Simulated assay, not measured.
Amino acid sequence: MGKKNGAVAFFDVDGTLVWHDYEKMRAMSAEERRELPPIKPSPAVYEAFSRMRAAGNLTFICTGRHLPFIPQTIRDLNPDGFVAGAGAFVCVGDRVVRAEFIERDLLLETARRFAAAGVDITLEGDVDNVELNPSGRPAHLPGSRLARTAEDAAELTVAHRYSKFCSNGVEERDLAPLRDFIDEHYTICDLQGGVLEFSMRGVDKGTGIEATLACLGRGREGTFAFGDSENDLSMRAAVETFVAMGNALPNVREVADYVTLTAAEDGVPAALERFGLI
């Protein structure tokens, strides 16, 4: 798998390998968002991944999306593995080296508290997503199952496991009654576009990368990570070189070793060339 001393690079998807116009998306209805075509990297990104392989370097997708929700357009990049679910799931080739899930009792208590507070969330798992929308809003993600109450969520989640959850369009004040519970069990990250991600404490992209490198028998030397949002910040300490996209949040750009062009401007291929990886 790659050259012994080749580089190992980890790539976020949304806002990094793929550009999103968040302002335009916020103005869309749930039905319009469900009808959007699958995300797809630019031809330059596909070419860059091919050149990475040819040079003997390893590539890993490092995303908040769970494995079943990584579209074929991203899999067609032919990475050497995945860090999915914001670090909860890791595979190197066909080998699963990490799989973390929210304990059932905590999942049910989370659903109960958020439903009581009237805050919509999407529970994201290894098989499906369950949108718990006490507000009455329709489901906004393709393939999601819809729950209105905590009891609905308990019934819909009984057969599968879930690693994280997200909220869409929720204001900080909406979380005030839940803050102590959240801080005890979860870490919150701003994913841009009005989306907040809630991950289990100690489970993030950084620890997912560490599990990947341990499986490869590699240290931090010759490792790179590319990202744009707060859930990418944990990658900074896990790799030698952290690259922020030009469209990254200010606090992500501030800690980066290098800031490349935006995703819309093919910032990933530009940075790979800058560091001599392609």
Rank of each mutant, 00 (worst) to 15 (best):
I70D: 13
R236L: 02
R113Y: 14
S144L: 03
L107K: 12
E197M: 09
T63C: 05
N5D: 06
M235D: 10
E273D: 09
A214L: 01
L178W: 09
A139W: 01
I121T: 14
G64Q: 07
N247M: 09
G208L: 11
N5H: 05
D128K: 15
D204P: 03
I74K: 10
F60L: 07
R148G: 08
M200L: 11
E171T: 14
Y22W: 11
P43M: 00
S163T: 06
D190N: 11
G87T: 12
A256R: 03
A30K: 13
R145F: 13
G217K: 06
G267M: 01
I39D: 07
F60C: 05
G64A: 06
D266L: 05
A244V: 12
N57G: 01
R201E: 07
I121N: 15
I70N: 09
G276S: 05
P38E: 11
G206R: 02
N231P: 02
C91G: 08
V158C: 06
V127Q: 13
G194Y: 02
P269H: 09
E109W: 04
E155G: 05
I74Y: 10
G15N: 13
F60S: 10
M1P: 12
P68F: 02
L191V: 00
G125S: 13
A55F: 01
E171K: 13
A27I: 02
S163A: 06
Y162W: 00
S167G: 14
A44N: 14
G222I: 03
P37G: 12
E31A: 12
